[in-house]
Design a protein around this nucleic acid. Structure first.
Length: 425
RNA sequence: GGAGAGGUGGCAGAGUGGUCGAUUGCACCGGUCUUGAAAACCGGCAAGGAUUCAUCUCCUUCGAGGGUUCGAAUCCCUCCCUCUCCGCCA
């Protein structure tokens, strides 16, 4: 949610800033709503004040033992009038809220301007894609060869866009999770958390998935809960309705969780293999910070995610998303794209964002600023550190050998009883 | 699932229809005292919103929603959550 004061003070400037991300803020609608709100709120509060004052007079008169009947008659009509006004105001405020919830965040000034992903800017590249002396297999073929990846079984059990891993690949997948968690907790100073995978609508509204992106979620209507699309939701909601102490900031959380996405609207995209699944594992980094340090922390968080790819010795590049490609809630985002030899392309494996106070305003996530003594909104950040399924794909494809065997990255060997190599059966 | 108890400010905890937005304690901030600190004493200290250059003033909020009333933290109804006991269960 945007700062209502900023919106009120200079709606034209907000509209201009949002136009950079191809969002059209309808100033006519906004200003009409605002004018009605202002008028109705003032008149409602006047009625409430009159009611309160009269009631106090009745109380005082009664205490003096006077006859209160005439006073009561005087106030009689006030209540109905007030109630009508209050209801109208409430309806208007709901209308205003749904309007405000539909407004995306304002991009930070450092975000490159552009229309779509073609205008994203590559910040840096790490590693060199390997030259293969044999035809490369993609992870699906490698999975079949190792008898360790079964998409047909997943269709039988659930539907398309699910997968079954077994044997060495299931273990490699688990090893990646352990490696990422251990690295972030031991080398990067994150606190590991375990959280609910089902969350309520309030949590999703807080992080920005609701109301606008309901179709992307799996819903459990009976219990009014949703499967999490990312650990960002439960972990960021740790700060909901909380006033943090200044000493607690910055707060760094790391969380491994499954993620569930309906992938509505992506029919036909990435249908082969486990690149785009309804269910996948992710290790998520979440930080809470003061407004002063949030951009420094975005750089830090991004470096922590990059460190995973570096330790796995996977070539990747870091991309700054342009204004036209940035997500709804984010003020600035870096994507990490890992090299996939079978696709001959860099593919997204992590997305690291600073949301500034956009989520915090919805969450009422605040801190007490010792300088002002005031309660102020925190800034929230998160990033994948990194997507586990895609990391598995990247390891398999980058580390494959001519016979279809897989060399194990050095940092994972300790999690695999020291194995250096997975031979096909 | 059954029975009972309870949800009040950062925390603890009073308050059962009328200056209660809320006694008090702790924590926190400022001051006096002190070489310094502690103690003691004095003062301040909820959040959100409207209006305003700012102050003043006003409105809302005692788990959530609805109701009764001129007036609700307080009475009634529904829901949510927490705790205790029983049952069941990983």
């Amino acid at each position: 949610m945007l700062d209502p004061y900023q919106l009120r003070a200079d709606p034209e400037a907000v509209a201009l800033a949002l136009s950079a991300r191809k969002f059209e803020l309808d100033l006519t609608i906004y200003q009409a709503l605002e004018a009605r709100r202002k008028q109705l709120q003032a008149s409602t509060q006047d009625l409430q004040a009159a009611r309160n004052q009269r009631s106090k007079e009745i109380g005082a008169a009664k205490a003096r033992g006077e006859d209160i009947a005439p006073l009561r008659a005087e106030v009689a009509g006030l209540g109905e009038q007030m109630k009508t006004s209050e209801q109208a105001l409430e309806a208007l405020q709901e209308e205003f809220e749904s309007f405000a919830l539909g407004l995306p965040n304002i991009p930070h000034h450092s975000v490159p301007r552009g229309q779509d992903e073609r205008d994203n800017i590559e910040i840096r590249r790490w590693g060199t894609p390997r030259e293969f002396s044999f035809p490369v297999r993609d992870h699906v073929d490698l999975g079949a060869l190792h008898q360790a990846m079964d998409f047909e079984a997943a269709v039988t059990i659930a539907s398309s866009r699910f997968s079954v891993l077994s044997g060495s690949f299931a273990r490699l997948h688990r090893a990646l999770i352990q490696f990422m968690l251990d690295t972030h907790t031991e080398a990067h100073g994150y606190r590991e958390v375990y959280v609910p995978y089902l969350v309520n609508a309030k949590s999703l509204r807080g992080t920005g998935q609701l109301p606008k992106f309901k179709d992307d979620l799996f819903e459990i209507p009976r219990q009014e809960l949703f499967l999490i699309p990312t650990a960002e939701v439960p972990v960021t909601n740790l700060a909901r309705d909380v006033i943090l102490n200044a000493e607690a900031l910055p707060t760094r959380y790391v969380c491994h969780s499954p993620c569930f996405r309906s992938e509505a609207g992506s029919y036909g995209r990435d249908t082969r293999g486990m690149i785009r699944q309804h269910q996948f594992e992710k290790v998520e980094l979440v930080q809470f910070s003061t407004p002063e340090t949030s951009y420094a922390q975005l750089e830090e968080l991004t470096a922590h995610a990059e460190s995973i790819l570096q330790r796995l010795e996977l070539p990747y590049r870091t991309v700054a998303l342009c204004t036209g490609d940035i997500g709804f809630s984010a003020a600035k985002t870096y994507d990490l794209e890992v090299w996939l030899p079978a696709q001959n392309a860099y593919r997204e494996i992590s997305s690291c964002s600073n949301f500034e106070d956009f989520q915090a305003r919805r969450l009422k996530a605040r801190w007490r600023n010792p300088k002002s003594g005031k309660v102020e909104l925190i800034h929230t950040l998160n990033g994948s550190g990194v997507a586990v399924g895609r990391a598995l794909v990247a390891v398999l494809e980058n580390y494959q050998q001519a016979d279809g065997g897989i060399e194990i990255p050095h940092v994972l060997r300790g999690y695999l009883s020291g194995q250096e190599h997975l031979a096909p059966p």
